[in-house]
């Protein structure tokens, strides 16, 4: 569905001094700086895959997505989306893709949502029957009924996002790009949106590329993640595999009546680190490869009085952080 080969995007940043004199000077002398936003990346995405495309801000995520949408022309490399080269054939590509850009709206600001969809129907030349069937489905699934007659500018963020999502799937595109689709939303709406995306993926086999900072999104939606940082791909593969590779770290919090004289038991010294000590809690960090959790608990219980304990699995967030810091 999507083929990316050796793709790069360089930005030339012109340095400009402030003020009028700076503006005039920049007409004659230009100091250039080349920044590689995307640096020779390659990947392939099969039809029907849901892929999480993640990385810190400025890593090159949106630059990649823009190139896949045909908004940006690559400096180097090849892209094909559903067989189309986006930047050469932008309009053809546009029919194949749908997109939601976090905070920006792709609907029409002043006119009621229903009319916006009506316009999109004409823009994408969607047959009336298909359109109506899909609208009915979306209205039900995203609970759009009560908001269809309101102009977009009067909608709340959650309402707007639901409308945006429906708009991006309306013309039944082969690929949908979702940029932070759940940012700033409450849990119920997030759930609703995730369910909808899963449903679309199952029903129409839509390929979904998702960029997000919400790890819950990824854990619930993606089978595969691509992690990008500084324009290069750090990791591309199974979500489960990542968890296996980096998911051996455990943290156990022990709630104790007093921690003043706490000292790590000698038998744990070689395998366990003290992560944190507060007035009533000791947190121990270890790898499940070196020592079993049960063993740590047993030794702690034998030496100290423990009121309660919680075991924390590694979140995907710390996994990503770990890859940033130490690599794979």
């Amino acid at each position: 569905m999507i083929e990316v080969k050796d793709l790069s995007k360089d930005y030339i940043i012109l340095k400009r001094k402030p003020g009028l004199s700076g503006a005039i000077r920049s007409l004659f002398i230009r100091e250039k700086e080349i920044k590689q936003a995307v640096d020779h990346i390659s990947f392939e995405i099969k039809p029907g895959e849901v892929v999480g495309y993640i990385g810190p801000n400025g890593a090159g995520k949106s630059t990649t997505i823009k190139m896949l949408c045909g908004i940006l022309t690559p400096s180097h490399g090849e892209i094909r989306v559903n067989g189309v080269v986006p930047y050469q054939n932008r309009k053809q590509n546009a029919i194949n893709i749908g997109a939601v850009y976090g905070q920006r709206t792709q609907l029409f600001w002043d006119i009621p949502v229903r009319e916006s969809y009506e316009l999109l129907r004409h823009i994408y030349e969607i047959p009336k029957n298909d359109f109506e069937a899909r609208m009915k489905h979306f209205t039900e699934y995203l609970n759009l009924g009560p908001i269809l007659d309101i102009p977009v500018r009067q909608l709340s963020l959650g309402q707007k996002m639901r409308c945006e999502l429906a708009a991006s799937f309306l013309h039944n595109p082969a690929v949908v790009f979702l940029d932070e689709p759940t940012i700033g939303l409450d849990v119920a709406v997030k759930e609703n949106i995730r369910k909808f995306i899963r449903e679309m993926n199952h029903l129409y086999g839509t390929t979904v590329i998702l960029t997000t900072h919400d790890m819950e999104d990824i854990e619930q939606l993606c089978q595969r993640i691509i992690i990008i940082d500084n324009g290069s791909i750090l990791y591309d593969g199974d979500l489960v595999a990542v968890k296996e590779r980096f998911g051996h770290q455990r943290t156990i919090h022990f709630e104790m009546p007093q921690t003043d004289h706490f000292k790590l038991p000698a038998s744990l010294e070689s395998t366990v680190d003290v992560a944190e000590i507060t007035e009533s809690r000791v947190s121990l960090l270890f790898s499940s490869r070196d020592i079993k959790g049960a063993e740590v608990i047993a030794i702690m219980m034998a030496e100290y009085e423990v009121n309660d304990l919680t075991i924390k699995d590694t979140s995907i967030e710390t996994i990503v952080k770990e890859i940033y810091e130490r690599g794979i």
Partner: peptide
């Protein structure tokens, strides 16, 4: 928002 115009088949 200009990007919005560019992802349309128009």
């Amino acid at each position: 928002n200009f990007d919005r115009l560019l992802i349309r088949p128009l």
